[in-house]
């Protein structure tokens, strides 16, 4: 048997490794992100939160990680696009009747849609917070991120957009977390149920924590 295969990264499995890898990287970023945000719960007029936010905006290591984060998102999205388009092409003639609900979960079949919603949310989110912070850093001014939180989340439409974004994130993670492990070839009778329940609780907790912030700010519970 001679070896005639093309390289790893352009193969269907290689692409999925990259998707899973970048996905898990984004998942670990979300943990840091939620911890920083949780500083608003000190309820000290944003003192702790602004300190953490300012550290994140100026620290050199964070700056480097941030570049990695953007690369990660871009890689994840580009691969997602390529894979989704190729997968659609694999069935040019659709079924007249197809009963997929018996064999798989709707969200596992909707990763492209959920991801697109996430991407749209990300654009809004970056425009709300990341861009103003960057402008302030660029001008050498101190940016009161906490005050901007309160202004942004006083708008019920913004609140609704954030909650919808978080619902998309929830279902994306619900499938994505355990899917990444299966892609990496980590499927084991004993450990896979643990990975699945960890992924479930991760998705629930991270999304509830994120959701609690715009809600409490909107309701004026955080001063």
């Amino acid at each position: 048997m001679s070896n005639t295969s093309p390289n790893f990264i352009t193969s269907s499995i290689g692409k999925k490794f990259l998707m899973g890898f970048t996905g898990l990287f984004l998942i670990s970023f979300l943990v840091i992100h939620v911890l920083i945000n949780a500083c608003i719960y000190f309820n000290d007029g944003g003192a702790t939160f602004n300190m953490a936010a300012s550290f994140m905006a100026h620290n050199i290591i964070i700056r480097i990680v941030e570049v990695g984060l953007f690369l990660g998102i871009i890689l994840h999205v580009v691969q997602a696009l390529i894979i989704t388009l190729q997968n659609n092409k694999a069935r040019p003639q659709k079924y007249a009747v197809q009963n997929l609900a018996v064999s798989s979960k709707w969200y596992s079949r909707s990763m492209g849609l959920l991801g697109t919603l996430l991407l749209m949310f990300l654009v809004v989110h970056l425009a709300n917070f990341w861009v103003p912070t960057k402008i302030a850093v660029f001008k050498g001014e101190e940016h009161n991120t906490f005050e901007s939180l309160k202004t942004v989340f006083s708008n019920p439409i913004v609140l609704a957009v954030y909650l919808l974004g978080l619902i998309s994130l929830f279902y994306h993670l619900l499938h994505g977390f355990q899917s990444a492990f299966q892609t990496f070839g980590l499927n084991h009778k004993k450990y896979t149920p643990c990975i699945k329940s960890f992924g479930f609780w991760y998705s629930v907790i991270i999304v509830l924590l994120f959701a609690s912030m715009p809600i409490t700010l909107f309701m004026g519970l955080i001063k």
Partner: peptide, 28 residues
């Protein structure tokens, strides 16, 4: 080594889609 590489390469070449781990195949 050659088996898995060549079979996957041929699978990709034939125009099958890639796996998104929905698990439907296993059920059916």
């Amino acid at each position: 080594t050659a088996r898995v590489k060549n079979m996957v390469a041929q699978m990709d070449l034939e125009g099958f889609g890639s796996c998104t781990n929905t698990g439907a195949c296993e059920i059916e």
